Computed example of a mutant assay.
Amino acid sequence: MAMVVTEPCFGCKYTDCVVVCPAECFYEGAQMLFIHPDECIDCGACVPECPVAAIYHEGDVPARWTDYIALNGEMAPLSPHITTRKPPLI
């Protein structure tokens, strides 16, 4: 199981979560971040750092956002790796 970035990240893309990730498993899409499920160590360090509460453990993703589980898995390998803080979109 892995952590999953969900809907609240779309359009804001805060990177507070990225800098605390010991596995460096975040990837940057045009409108949001993604977590690579094969790289995530499920530590949860990113969860309290997200100012918009967009990150959930895969088993705790709200029903309305379960499509984001697959989206993270699909988009992370196609997106640039991110390990440093950047200005948010908003």
Rank of each mutant, 00 (worst) to 15 (best):
A54D: 08
G73A: 15
L71H: 10
D42S: 14
T6S: 14
F34N: 11
D60L: 04
R85E: 04
W65M: 15
A23T: 09
V20R: 09
G59E: 14
T84K: 14
P48G: 02
A30S: 14
V61R: 00
A45V: 02
F26P: 08
P48W: 00
W65V: 06
K86Q: 15
G29A: 08
V47D: 06
E39A: 12
V52A: 01
C12D: 11
M32D: 02
C50M: 05
K13E: 11
C21V: 05
P48I: 00
M32I: 02
M32P: 01
P80G: 08
A76W: 09
I69Q: 08
R85V: 00
P51H: 05
M3F: 04
P88I: 01
P8M: 03
V5C: 02
N72P: 09
I69D: 09
D42M: 04
P88W: 01
C12F: 12
E7V: 04
C46Y: 03
V4A: 09
A54C: 13
T6Q: 07
P87H: 03
V61T: 02
V18H: 06
V52Y: 00
D42I: 00
Y14G: 01
A76H: 11
A2T: 15
H57V: 05
V19W: 03
P77H: 09
D38P: 00
T66D: 11
T83M: 06
C9Q: 10
N72K: 10
K13I: 00
P48D: 00
C50Y: 07
L33T: 07
I69G: 07
S79F: 02
P37Y: 10
A23S: 15
D60E: 15
F26V: 05
L71G: 03
C17T: 01
E24M: 11
I69R: 12
G11S: 09
E58T: 01
Q31Y: 09
M75W: 07
F26H: 15
D16A: 03
I90V: 13
L89Y: 04
